[in-house]
Design a protein around this nucleic acid. Structure first.
Length: 146
DNA sequence: GCCAACGTTGGC
DNA sequence: GCCAACGTTGGC
């Protein structure tokens, strides 16, 4: 899961957890949210910052449910085309697990064989929720010195 | 802050 | 159903 640390960082999650992950407004990302299960581990990625990359781990502690901000006209995430009778967008609840000793930078992901086919390293990629393969998990944990 | 890449919208 | 215009994401 990606986030801009200037908006909401892993440190923020450490102090406010669990957190409803609202505001996802991309159908592909939403579908990935829906496939998540309670107890699933999540890699936490910081974007739009000096060293973009994976900074730690979080965990899913509630499965997908309708995102209430879609009905709220005062919300930045308001979607006039959505209604409680026919919700369009979902959220999951995310809890802090741990911060890695060091950031696994985008540069090092680009250099890792397991990530060559991942949308994560693709230029122009905009998916803020995306799946990680078992091989990628192994690579990440190795790079994180865990 | 710039801008390339991409998803979405809406006129036709 | 096409595609230009628009808004957003995210590396740099």
């Amino acid at each position: 899961m990606k986030t801009e640390p200037s908006v909401f960082s892993l440190e923020d999650l450490a102090h406010r957890s669990p957190e409803p992950w609202d505001g996802i407004r991309n159908y592909q990302a939403r579908n990935f949210l829906r496939s998540m299960q309670v107890g699933d581990d999540v890699l936490f990625y910081h974007s739009r910052c000096p060293i973009p990359g994976i900074v730690g781990l979080a965990r899913i502690c509630a499965a997908a449910r309708p995102d209430p901000t879609q009905y709220d006209p005062s919300s930045h995430y308001f979607d006039p085309a959505s209604s409680p009778q026919k919700p369009r967008w979902d959220l999951v609840d995310v809890a802090y697990v741990r911060s890695f000793p060091r950031t696994i930078s985008l540069d090092s992901l680009k250099a890792h064989p397991a990530f060559q086919d991942s949308p994560l390293i693709r230029k122009g990629n905009r998916l803020s929720v995306l799946p990680i393969t078992p091989t990628q998990w192994e690579g990440i944990l190795a790079m994180a010195d865990m």
